[in-house]
Write a protein that binds this DNA or RNA. Structure first.
Lengths: 343, 343
DNA sequence: ATCACAACTGCAAGCGCTTCCAAAGTATAC
DNA sequence: GTATACTTTGGAAGCGCTTGCAGTTGTGAT
């Protein structure tokens, strides 16, 4: 493999000049730059990543920690992050820490302390204050998406607010028998979102003077199949059937719709369903939802980090609330006539 | 940040010994090892990734190139690769090259030639012979999953064989009016699979003396929503309706089932549907399918690479045919009575 | 022509480790 | 007790770049 020395020799320049020419930093005459580039091209030379990183202290590499890559939100964020990073010439080191907590810690130690990454994006992961301080101490900016990160910069949507909006939408249509499907407790550890959305739902119900019936509070694991199973219990069980379901994610809303169909329930005539996400499948199901642009959130996270790395601005612990968009389709409507109180 | 020197000093050892103690290579007395580890722990020291890589030439980093992270097959492979790599103490650098070919080339140059990775896993990407040679020339083992990689090691399923098996399953049930939903031409560039599965389908039909009707050959983009749209055309259009659909992926099979339901067709009584994949959602839809363990394929790819890197064995251009499993559920049955020729 | 200043360029000192080599210590064999 | 082989250690030379510093050259102003 050719080294920068070979390039320098061939171009009739010093190693230093070639380095500057190739990296674009520092002053180099056009002539030298062209020579260096030509020589590099002829030799098929590319700067060694590790040598550059070691010498310069910059990695051009961002770590992305996600709990899963299968669920819609996460894979969407990954896509957004990946595309933005690639455009900026950065590498993405992916840490899928699905399988438990021990691994998470070793991951953090390993790639943060070993300074392989310039920055970290943590998705729906609840880092401890200590972990965050550790990161900030070694000047590794960190931004969180979809989870509270005390002391760090975060990007999030107004979970409580949109949950309220979703519930209000149903209430305004005339529903009073509204069920809520929230995320599983299993996820609550790292993922406070279920609680937040649930809180918003309860608030909206309370505000409207409606009862939050415990038997209509169900949970699932954020997947279609998990929600399908839960919804079958809810809709096919012995308890009175709600006229509307607010699911904390589109995937769960879709699972609910599938379960409803199994029971011959027509959506929205017999059952209204609303989700949160903006999942690509929403259109197929005519799903009313609140669109959170997950790709966009990933992209924004990257832009924020890079601004802090390349530029001067340190965004600090700035919290950005990402905008959402209410998308009304055909899965929500007025409740069935026989369930509306006659006037 | 403490360096290895500080650790050496604190432990009363030389830098060399500490390096050996911490990396586990070479002979170090138990006493020295413990001292070194203790000192490192006290100082919160971790070896610098780049310095180690530069000095040793080993990266402990594998590049994974995928065309997407959203579609089931790819995200499953990513999970399998990620978990196996993490267990082995390797990093995963993810390259999502969805947006076109130019990017792909810059990616290859960038991370292959810059030797940031020890090996490459390419999923459903068709690298040119030149690209592969380039990789092998610099001793970067490469394994392909789900795509032909001339000269490189690959892991793949018997696409033609399972397509034949799927078609035969329908034929044996008594179907003769069988449609096939294949992958879009847009993917054929990098992804020869659609053609291969289609070939298997045609062969099975021919072998059974059945006609492959062009109007029943439709395509979609491998997504549920894409397949849904195509299936609506197929099932709701003016052409005679088939009694069975063989979709080249589970996601497309599911899209087809959803479309069928829209038209009031009961699966499997009015329409049989079979897919390929082993998608988690298959169970919800009672989908008959051929399970290819995508996670397992990813894991196997990693194990193969690591064997080549750590051990002595160079697997060379060994092609592994990954086993698949026929999963019969409730989406396939005998054709509707009125369409079976009376005897 | 002279001077001040900016734009280039090259030298060489690292960046923080790994590993070759030789020396020292220790166990085993005769 | 000595020779032989193996284990353990430290010194020091890199790995392949980047960058501070100082020297060289070119420019416009005087």
């Amino acid at each position: 493999m050719p080294g920068i020395k070979d390039v320098a020799e061939r171009a009739g320049l010093s190693v230093a000049t070639v380095s500057r020419a190739l990296s674009g930093k520092g002053n180099v005459s056009t002539r030298s730059r062209e020579r260096a580039q030509a020589a590099a091209a002829e030799l098929g030379f590319v700067l060694s990543y590790h040598a550059s990183s070691l010498a310069s202290g910059r990695n051009h590499n961002v770590g992305l920690v996600v709990p899963s890559v299968h669920r819609w939100f996460f894979s969407s964020v990954v896509e957004g992050v990946s595309a933005t990073l690639l455009d900026a010439g950065y590498d993405l080191t992916l840490y899928n820490v699905s399988e438990g907590q021990e691994r998470r810690h070793s991951v953090l130690n390993d790639f943060l302390l070993r300074k392989r990454v310039d920055a970290v994006i943590a998705v729906s992961l609840e880092l401890s204050e200590a972990e965050i301080q550790q990161l900030l101490a070694i000047h590794r900016p960190i931004v969180g998406i979809g989870g509270p990160l005390p002391g760090a910069s975060t990007i999030r949507i107004d979970d409580s607010g949109i949950a309220q909006a979703a519930a209000r939408h149903l209430i305004q249509l005339g529903h009073s028998k509204i069920a809520h499907m929230t995320g599983d407790a299993a996820y609550e550890k790292d993922f406070r979102l279920p609680g937040t959305r649930q809180g918003g739902f309860k608030k909206a119900m309370k505000d409207a003077g409606l009862a939050v019936r415990p038997e209509w509070q169900v949970s699932a694991d954020f997947t279609i199949q998990g929600a399908y199973a839960s919804a079958r219990q809810l809709l096919g069980g012995p308890v009175e059937r709600p006229t509307a379901v607010f699911a904390a994610s589109d995937e769960m809303a879709i699972g609910t719709i599938l379960a409803a169909r199994d029971f011959g329930l027509r959506v929205p005539y017999d059952l209204s369903v609303i989700g949160i996400d903006g999942h690509e499948l929403g259109e197929v199901f005519g799903l009313t939802t609140i669109d959170q642009d997950a790709r966009g959130q990933g992209a924004l996270a990257v832009r924020r980090l890079l601004a802090g790395l390349d530029g001067v601005g340190d965004p600090g612990a700035a919290d950005a609330e990402f905008p959402t968009r209410f998308v009304i389709r055909s899965s929500t409507a007025v409740p069935p006539v026989d369930s509306v109180p006659l006037r």
